[in-house]
């Protein structure tokens, strides 16, 4: 299986605001950009897929790209991704589920509703995905790195 690495490529935004990829002279409209390991190695590999989900471009190492291209990729990723990273749990409404949590994230303070204990899923070693009742996933990157109070709250559910 060959890895699609075009000789020349450029990612850009069309007038309607969709991302398109120009690769070796072909222009693909409405492409999506996705990280291969968004949690365990977010800056590692990135893939550009066409509207049907076929891969057009594989970038082995995002960090190794030149700055202009990387910024484009990051921008495209930012327009698609939404995984707030929880930095601290400020309060919980109850220790039984459903429980309303007040959290501080990298995108500001907010509230989320934890529907059940199964909505907390460990990913890899010490990361935790929190899927709230509305379907948004929050990420706790490193549980031991949380402050004491947050860990105390979390222990009630894990």
């Amino acid at each position: 299986m060959n890895v699609p690495i075009p000789f020349h490529w450029a990612l850009m935004r069309d007038a309607a605001g969709h991302w398109c990829l120009e690769a070796d002279g072909m222009v693909h409209a409405r492409v999506t950009v996705a990280r291969a390991f968004p949690i365990s190695a977010p800056d590692d590999a990135v893939s550009v897929l066409d509207a049907d989900g076929h891969e057009l471009l594989w970038i082995d190492d995002l960090a190794a790209l030149d700055e202009a291209r990387r910024e484009r990729i990051e921008a495209a990723l930012a327009s698609r991704e939404f995984t707030p990273v929880i930095e601290a749990i400020l309060a919980i409404s109850s220790i039984s589920t459903p429980s309303r949590w007040t959290v501080r994230t990298d995108r500001g303070n907010t509230e989320l509703l934890l529907p059940g204990e199964e909505a907390l899923q460990r990913v890899g070693g010490s990361s935790l995905l929190v899927a709230d009742a509305a379907g948004v996933q929050y990420l706790i990157r490193d549980i031991p790195a949380l402050d004491r109070a947050s860990r105390k709250f979390l222990e009630r559910f894990l």
Binding site: A34, A36, F37, S40, S47, G53, L129, Q137
Partner: peptide
Amino acid sequence: ARAANAHEFIMRLPHGYDSL
């Protein structure tokens, strides 16, 4: 995953290879 024809559908999942 590529050789197993699985790469593309994995990349379509919201968390890629980190999907549970």
